[in-house]
Design a protein around this nucleic acid. Structure first.
Lengths: 211, 211, 211, 211
DNA sequence: TATGAATGAGTGTTCATTCAT
DNA sequence: GATGAATGAACACTCATTCAT
């Protein structure tokens, strides 16, 4: 069910494999951030990881494996941090807090998120689904929070609206990363959280009512 | 003011340049969509355009020029179609209509939008600003619509909220393109417009009130 | 006997051919001087000549034809100027004057000479002999001058010495062009003529005798 | 002081670098001699050297590096062999011997000398000075020999004449290489040495005196 | 006769991947 | 397990030459 796409390693010692791959991922993220996946060479990745090109290929099969490992790792990190959210409370305030929490994470991991976000499309048809599945799981966390609110009677909303709302929240988190060039001038992350939450909760009609 | 970054062509006949470049752009969009900018070769672009590699280079200087031309052309097409929106009316209904109109365009131009969205970041530091400027202009159109509503007294909203709302609308249009893999299963474009508009206009608190 | 290697032209009007080729040669010399034959493109030659690439090829068949025409033309110019030398007098003074005269020409035509000198080797096996023949003719002029001195009884010298002496004089003229980087710091052309003539006429042993 | 312009190699093993570069130089000299630098492709160089194009580029950065390496190596070889000359003796006979020795080397290394002589000018403004400096050093060796004769009282000659005489000797050595097409018919290398030495030592006036 | 758009073989160079040590 | 030299397919780009107008 939660089957991971495994990347083949020639080396048998799993401890070592994990260690080397972590070195590799750290180096690769830095490089991808700076020049993108395609403009980064395997030699550079090996060097940034601190070992030789020959050794690199003891732990992966193709350059794309590195990208997959990187994306996979970033998703895992994000998801791990998202575990801190209280998903089950089912109050609108917990939704508010969840959004703020998530946006903060996106802010702190902006480099990683940007890499994953911009380079994931270079994954092969083979690897992509595994990554997209993880993304849906994360969207699912917001869906759960919202659904709890509905179950709790704090909200009346049908499935389609719930689903899209979850997507919107997820995308708005990413948006803080990929539109920083435009948003960064006018908003701090706290501004962004506040204004985005206002718009989400209040709705245009509500503003209209204020008249 | 509206200075365009021009791409050098060896061929002098401007009519011909326009024609050949259009062929080139059409071919390139199809290829970039399928395999991305980096995995597409200049020979493939030439072939898709219907001429030889030598001819291709009579109309551009570097491969990146193709990407710039593609992005530039897509933005122009989108913007041109957006001219159909009534930006000045200043009623919430015109905002509603504008959003629906924009989302429809994003739906019809999904290939182009996807390409532009995913590949624009491969543009050099030199060319990127020209493209981003166009994007801001389009965001600005929504900002104008919203501001007119405020001017008209249909809405009470400060600048920060207006600005971010415009960004949100813009991103949600793109989102229909770049998250089709997730949205496509549950929504038609009309569903998407309706649900997205509901969320935008009503706001979570309003749903809460319905209780 | 003095058959010229002809370069084919599509255009029939010989007057026109001569005119166009002169334009071509003038432009090409300037370009070859600056960047060498190989780094100069046919387009640049056409442009420097003042007509289109298509027209260029109405007057030559290949790029190498241009080089041949250039070399041929330069040799002709040099030879034409050398006609001013009195070859038949048969005195050592006339040899002295001939050398000075020739070195002056080399100085005045330094650019052309350098081009011819450095690029002629790029001529095909086909064209090279025609150019070399002209060179030998020029060497022959010095040979004649020297031989006249011998015939006149001003000099006792066998054929081998005469032949090599003529070559030496010829090369020392070129040398002023191709070793300017080293000679230019210490010598004006007049210095060069004087010192070179001293060495040629006096001989090392003579200096020795001065002791 | 004797700073060498180094050519970057990706391979670290210096022994290997030296070996591979020697293979490369040997192959390149043969090719350059036959078709010149510009008409020789990097692939041909790699093949002549006995390895693949990829390997070639492990040992150089650009095609021009090959040319520099070739020129540099030839100069070094020539200079190394010239060490055999007795520079300090300060007799006219040692000058005679030096010239004969040098001309013999030029004869034996005719291929290399021709290449260096004809292609060195294709070096970039960056690399050329290093090569020219070596040439001046070699000219300087003859200058030293001559100056010793003057110091020794075997010769009376001022600096300008010494300098140009050294240049003449140097060029006449090269001349045996680059004018073989004309000289080869009438002279063996021994003839050439003898006749050239006669002319150099005796001087035209001396012949005149013989009358 | 003049033009210049079209062509595509050819070029220098890169880089993912392999494999002998 | 680790290394890094070797490989060659692949790439972006050039330019001499042709030919329809």
């Amino acid at each position: 069910m939660n089957k991971k796409r495994t990347v083949h390693a020639s080396v048998k010692d799993e401890r070592l494999v994990r260690m080397r791959r972590n070195q590799m991922i750290r180096g690769a993220v830095a490089l991808f951030k700076q020049k993108g996946f395609h403009r980064t060479t395997t030699r550079e990745i090996a060097q940034a990881a601190g070992f030789s090109i020959g050794t690199l290929y003891e732990y992966i099969r193709t350059k794309e494996d590195v990208l997959y490992l990187v994306c996979d790792s970033i998703y895992d990190q994000v998801r791990e941090r998202l575990q801190g959210m209280d998903v089950d409370k089912g109050t609108l305030d917990s939704l508010r807090l969840g959004i703020a929490y998530y946006f903060k994470i996106m802010d702190e991991m902006q480099d990683e998120v940007l890499v994953m976000y911009q380079e994931a499309k270079s994954l092969s048809k083979d690897a992509l689904p595994y990554v997209l599945k993880k993304e849906l799981e994360m969207v699912g966390m917001f869906e759960t929070i919202i659904r709890r609110c509905v179950d709790n009677g704090e909200l009346v909303m049908d499935n389609k609206h719930i689903d899209l709302l979850a997507h919107n929240i997820f995308v708005q988190g990413q948006m803080w990363g990929f539109r920083r060039w435009a948003l960064g001038k006018n908003y701090s992350i706290d501004d962004y959280i506040k204004v985005q939450t206002d718009l989400l909760f209040t709705g245009i009609e509500q503003y209209q009512k204020q008249l």
